[in-house]
C-alpha cells in the first residue's frame, strides 16, 4: 500500500466519505514513531498502548481544526507528549497512597517489563534517565535516541532552542554523574 503524503491525508480527511481511509493512513504512517516516543516517557507497554490510543482519538476529534502552519508530525508529537505527561500526572496522583516515591515505582515498572530487550548497560542508562525531571527526560530522549533537531523540538515543546540546549546539557551531565557513581 503506497504511503500518502501529509498533504493528501489532510485533504482527504476533510472530504465526506474519505475521512476514515485518510485517518487510517495517518495512523499507519505515524503510529510507530509516536509509540516509541510515548513508550520512552511512560515506560510500560500497556500504558504506552493506552496513551497512543488516547493520542489518536484526540487527533481524530480535532484534526478538523488543524492548521497546517506547523507540520502534521510536529502537531502529532505535541499531542502525544501532552497525553503522556497528563497520563503520568494522573498515575502519580493515583499512586500516592501506595508508593512513597513515584520515581521508584516507574523504575520498578522498567525492571519488571517483559518487553524490555536491552542489555545491562541499557537498563542502567534507562534507570538513570528515569531519575531526571520529566521535561528534561523528554528532551534527552528526543535528542539522544530520536535525534530530533532543536528547532523541531522547540516547535513541539514550545520551549526556546537555548533552553532546550541547556536542558540537554544538564541531562547529560546528570546521567554521566549517576552512571559514574555506580
Amino acid at each position: 500500500m503506497p504511503v500518502w503524503e501529509d498533504g493528501e491525508i489532510l485533504k482527504a480527511i476533510k472530504v465526506l466519505g474519505q475521512e476514515e481511509a485518510a485517518f487510517n493512513q495517518l495512523v499507519q504512517k505515524y503510529q510507530e514513531r509516536l509509540y516509541w516516543h510515548i513508550r520512552k516517557i511512560v515506560i510500560s507497554h500497556d500504558d504506552a498502548d493506552d496513551v497512543l490510543q488516547n493520542t489518536m482519538i484526540k487527533v481524530w476529534k480535532s484534526i478538523g481544526n488543524f492548521r497546517s502552519e506547523s507540520g502534521l508530525f510536529t502537531w502529532l508529537y505535541r499531542i502525544a507528549t501532552n497525553e503522556s505527561l497528563t497520563f503520568l500526572k494522573q498515575k502519580k496522583k493515583r499512586s500516592m497512597g501506595n508508593w512513597e516515591d513515584f520515581e521508584h515505582m516507574i523504575s520498578e515498572t522498567l525492571e519488571s517489563d517483559q518487553w524490555f530487550n536491552g542489555d545491562e548497560i541499557q537498563m542502567k542508562l534507562q534507570q538513570a534517565i528515569l531519575k531526571l525531571p520529566e521535561k528534561q527526560r523528554i528532551v534527552f530522549n528526543m535528542k539522544y535516541f530520536d535525534e530530533v533537531k532543536y528547532e523541531k523540538m522547540s516547535e513541539i515543546l514550545g520551549t526556546s532552542v537555548g533552553a532546550l540546549k541547556a536542558s540537554y546539557h544538564h541531562a547529560v551531565k546528570k546521567i554521566e554523574a549517576m552512571l559514574g557513581d555506580d
Binding site: Q31, R39, H45, D113, W115, N117, G118, D119, I121, K124
Partner: peptide, 28 residues
C-alpha cells in the same frame, strides 16, 4: 536481558539502540 559489562559511555552507538520491544503483531 543480555549481560554486557562494558563501561557506560553515552557516545557508544549501541546505547542508542531501542531497548524496548512490543508484543508480536502489535503495530499490525
Amino acid at each position: 536481558m543480555n549481560k554486557n559489562h562494558n563501561k557506560l559511555d553515552l557516545k557508544q552507538e549501541t546505547l542508542k539502540k531501542q531497548p524496548f520491544g512490543v508484543p508480536e503483531g502489535y503495530f499490525e
